[in-house]
Design a protein around this nucleic acid. Structure first.
Length: 577
DNA sequence: TAAATTGGCGCC
DNA sequence: AAAGGGCGCCAATTTA
């Protein structure tokens, strides 16, 4: 990837002043361009050419205040995120990733530990809020780290892919800040009505909801004595008294039981969950002025999926989505990538038959079902998911054999990833995000080339299988932990590569909507919500379709695999299903 | 008493 | 239908 975009660096100098300068060409010691020293970083942005890629310590630390000043940035290079990705690729996950730490490593100085993550503030509307507080790094030091990162990016297994990953995740941090600022439209009045409808009135206006109390009473009545349904130990004991032995009180364990407590107990669990996780107090904490503003963290999981801090934004119960309503005259475009993970598996495994199936203009599982599953879509779906998740028992295992016959390379790809994990090696996503070493593998992890490469390349990173590991791994004896590690790495390459694709898709969509009034307001693994004026909805739908295609081409090159969306234009999120 | 762990369940 | 992967959050319980 040749990047002719101008690059400027921006750094806080510690006195409340900011410095900005063009990034010198590789090899040059010092910028020959202007050196700006300003009070307001927005001023620096406005002084540089439009489209500049901004090199800074942390997007989350800088960008909110730029947005508050009315300044948007097209692209950036987030030093601390790049450091995280590079350390991972080098087999050094867990080493501090702050810019200061990167600088210290470069100069063989004592490496400061990363500052602890602060909990999200429900009222975080303050643009100066910094989720990653850290000592500022002077401009020259930042430039030195940036130059070092450029060299290390060039030394990765697939430099072009890795640069793509770094650029895309940097864009994702820009988007995350923009989505936080925009907020998800949220009707507190609708939410309140919904809660009352589901849970009943609260005793005394703020106490336990009536329906919850009634259900708890019914559970007690069914057992003939007082049993609190939210205490698993009490529930297990109560069932035992009635001659039913339970390993847990999980819903799937109890729902088939023949006992009068089961029905009210399951209903209680469902409503209790809503009450505690998305009830009245959640509403008071998280919804202000008609918006829910979670803090999105791109790449917050090991696989590269995003997480959110506070508000449980990625676990909003479907029933609560009734409260997500577009502004008057506006719409929500809800787009869900169809079978994202199997399509990604087709693209990364290069299995010809699976790619062909994933390129047909129809439901992927239906297409798979015609290849050795005699049209049984459910069986085909179970087999595919079982392969991706590493299912160890049940129907998935039976159907896996049929899948392996028809799509040997696709199944071999995930099997190889599982084997790598069991042998203590590292695996990577398509763009190069790398899984951490197994717990207990200690210091000095040998990072080499590799990961899973069924194309016949070098056979992965050689971990050297250190002795005395906590996971009990020894050659030839697959422990429970070893198998779990295999399931993790198996899933990692698919879930992670899907997250790679999603990053590129979001970056493309963000770019496409930059000239519109439309705003991305929510993202959840394979689903994106855009809030836009009704008259823009059709253009947004098309932009999403194009972004999916473009992401597929940029990530995986020219393959027959398609990445379609199911898209709905609605006023209320709950109507999208 | 505070921090860490557990059980359970919401989402993908 | 359940069980494989990834999370966050809550309440209760255990540990330090």
């Amino acid at each position: 990837m040749s990047d002719r975009t101008p690059r400027w660096a921006l750094a806080e100098d510690g006195d409340g002043w900011w410095q900005a300068a063009p990034v010198p060409p590789a090899g040059a010691a010092r910028a020959d361009g202007p050196l700006l020293r300003v009070r307001d970083p927005a001023e620096a942005i406005r002084s540089a050419p439009p489209g500049t890629r901004w090199v800074w310590r942390s997007t989350a630390a800088v960008y909110p205040r730029l947005l508050a000043a009315g300044v948007r940035v097209e692209r950036c290079h987030d030093i601390e995120d790049a450091e995280l990705l590079l350390l991972g690729h080098e087999g050094r996950s867990g080493e501090p990733r702050s810019a200061a730490a990167a600088w210290a490593r470069l100069h063989h100085a004592p490496v400061p530990p990363d500052p602890p993550q602060r909990a999200a503030d429900p009222r975080a509307q303050d643009p100066l809020f910094d989720p990653q507080p850290a000592a500022p790094l002077p401009l020259d030091a930042l430039l030195a780290v940036h130059a070092d990162q450029a060299v290390r990016l060039g030394a990765t297994e697939h430099p072009d892919r890795m640069r793509l990953l770094v650029a895309a995740e940097s864009a994702a941090f820009l988007l995350a800040a923009e989505m936080h600022r925009a907020g998800l439209p949220w009707r507190a009045d609708v939410h309140r009505a919904l809660l009352t409808e589901l849970l009943g009135e609260r005793y005394g206006g703020g106490g336990e909801p009536r329906r919850l109390a009634e259900l708890a009473d019914r559970v007690s009545a069914a057992f003939g004595r007082r049993v609190r349904p939210d205490l698993p130990a009490e529930v297990v004991k109560a069932f035992a008294k009635d001659g039913i032995k339970l390993r847990s009180t999980r819903r799937w364990e109890i729902q088939e039981l023949d006992h009068p407590a089961v029905e009210p107990l399951i209903e209680y669990k469902k409503l209790y969950r809503i009450y505690t996780a998305h009830g009245w107090s959640w509403l008071g904490d998280w919804v202000h002025a008609g918006r829910f503003r979670p803090e999105f963290v791109p790449g917050g999981t090991l696989t590269g999926r995003w997480v959110t801090n506070g508000g449980g934004a990625l676990q909003i119960p479907k029933v609560i989505r009734r409260a997500v309503v577009a502004d008057p005259g506006w719409r929500l475009v809800v787009a869900d990538a169809d079978q994202m993970e199997p399509r990604v598996l087709a693209a990364i495994s290069r299995d010809p038959a699976f790619m062909e199936v994933a390129g047909r203009p129809e439901d992927l599982y239906t297409a798979v079902s015609r290849q050795g599953f005699s049209g049984d879509r459910d069986k085909a779906k179970i087999a595919v998911l079982g392969a991706v998740y590493g299912q160890t028992s049940g129907d998935g295992l039976k159907n896996l054999a049929a899948l392996r016959r028809r799509f040997p390379r696709a199944v071999a790809y995930v099997d190889d990833a599982a084997k790598a994990g069991e042998e203590g090696r590292l695996v990577r996503t398509w763009l190069g995000r790398t899984c951490p070493p197994p717990a207990g593998s200690g210091e000095g992890y040998e990072a080499g080339d590799g990961g899973v490469d069924p194309g016949g390349g070098p056979d992965g990173i050689d971990a050297g299988a250190p002795q005395g590991r906590e996971d009990g791994w020894t050659p030839g004896h697959a422990s429970t932990n070893t198998r779990a590690r295999g399931r993790f790495t198996r899933n990692f390459v698919v879930q992670g590569s899907a997250a790679d694709w999603a990053l590129l898709m979001l970056a493309a969509l963000r770019q496409a909507t930059a000239g519109m009034r439309a705003e991305l307001v929510f993202f959840q693994h394979d689903e994106v919500l855009v809030h836009c004026p009704a008259e823009e909805a059709a253009a947004v739908v098309e932009a999403i379709r194009a972004a999916g295609d473009r992401a597929g081409r940029i990530a995986f090159g020219d393959t027959p695999v398609r990445f379609p969306f199911t898209t709905a234009v609605v006023e209320c999120y709950a109507d999208a299903k």
